[in-house]
Amino acid sequence: MTHDAEMIQRQRVAELVQNWAVWRDAGDWERFRSCWHEDGFMMATWCQAPASDFIKASQAGWAKGVSILHFLGGISVDVAGTRAIAQTKMTISQRAEVHGVLVDVVCTGRFYDFCEERAGRWGIVMRQPIYEKDRMDPVDPAARLDLDRDLLARFPEGYRHLAYLQTGIGYEVKRDMPGLKGERVEALYRAGAAWLRGETLAWPA
Score class of each variant (00 low, 15 high):
Gln128Lys: 09
Pro129Cys: 02
Pro129Lys: 07
Pro129Arg: 07
Ile130Lys: 09
Ile130Phe: 06
Ile130His: 06
Tyr131Pro: 05
Tyr131Ile: 04
Tyr131Thr: 10
Glu132Asn: 15
Lys133Asp: 13
Lys133His: 12
Asp134Gly: 08
Asp134Leu: 07
Asp134His: 06
Asp134Asn: 11
Arg135His: 11
Arg135Phe: 10
Arg135Tyr: 08
Met136Tyr: 07
Met136Gln: 11
Asp137Met: 12
Pro138Phe: 02
Pro138Thr: 04
Val139Tyr: 03
Val139Met: 10
Val139Gly: 06
Val139Gln: 09
Asp140Glu: 07
Asp140Tyr: 02
Asp140Val: 10
Pro141Gln: 05
Ala142Glu: 12
Ala142Thr: 13
Ala143Met: 07
Arg144Leu: 12
Leu145Gln: 09
Leu145Trp: 02
Leu147Asp: 11
Leu147Asn: 08
Leu147Met: 12
Leu147Phe: 11
Asp148Glu: 14
Asp148Pro: 14
Asp148Trp: 15
Arg149Gln: 15
Arg149Asp: 15
Arg149Trp: 14
Arg149Tyr: 12
Asp150Thr: 15
Leu151Ser: 11
Leu151Thr: 15
Leu152Lys: 08
Ala153Thr: 10
Ala153Leu: 09
Arg154Tyr: 00
Arg154Ser: 07
Arg154Met: 05
Phe155Trp: 14
Phe155Arg: 10
Phe155Met: 08
Phe155Lys: 09
Pro156Ala: 03
Pro156Gln: 01
Pro156Arg: 02
Pro156His: 03
Glu157Thr: 12
Glu157Ser: 09
Glu157Phe: 06
Glu157Gln: 10
Gly158Tyr: 03
Gly158Met: 06
Gly158Leu: 07
Gly158Cys: 10
Tyr159Trp: 13
Tyr159Thr: 13
Arg160Ser: 12
Arg160Val: 14
His161Phe: 13
His161Asn: 15
His161Lys: 10
Leu162Gly: 14
Leu162Cys: 13
Ala163Ser: 12
Tyr164Ile: 10
Leu165Arg: 04
Leu165Trp: 03
Leu165Cys: 09
Leu165Asn: 04
Gln166Phe: 13
Gln166Thr: 09
Gln166Tyr: 10
Thr167Gly: 02
Thr167Gln: 08
Thr167Ile: 03
Gly168Met: 05
Gly168Gln: 05
Ile169Pro: 00
Ile169Glu: 04
Ile169Trp: 03
Ile169Asn: 03
Gly170Asn: 08
Gly170Tyr: 09
Gly170Met: 07
Gly170Gln: 09
Gly170Pro: 09
Gly170Thr: 11
Glu172His: 13
Glu172Ser: 13
Glu172Trp: 12
Val173Cys: 02
Val173Phe: 01
Lys174Ala: 04
Lys174Met: 01
Arg175Val: 14
Arg175Met: 12
Asp176Cys: 05
Asp176Leu: 00
Asp176Met: 00
Asp176Lys: 06
Met177Asn: 02
Met177Ser: 04
Pro178Gln: 07
Gly179Ile: 02
Leu180Gly: 00
Leu180Ser: 04
Lys181Met: 07
Lys181His: 07
Lys181Phe: 06
Lys181Thr: 14
Lys181Glu: 05
Lys181Tyr: 04
Glu183Ser: 13
Glu183Lys: 14
Arg184Asp: 02
Val185Leu: 03
Val185Arg: 12
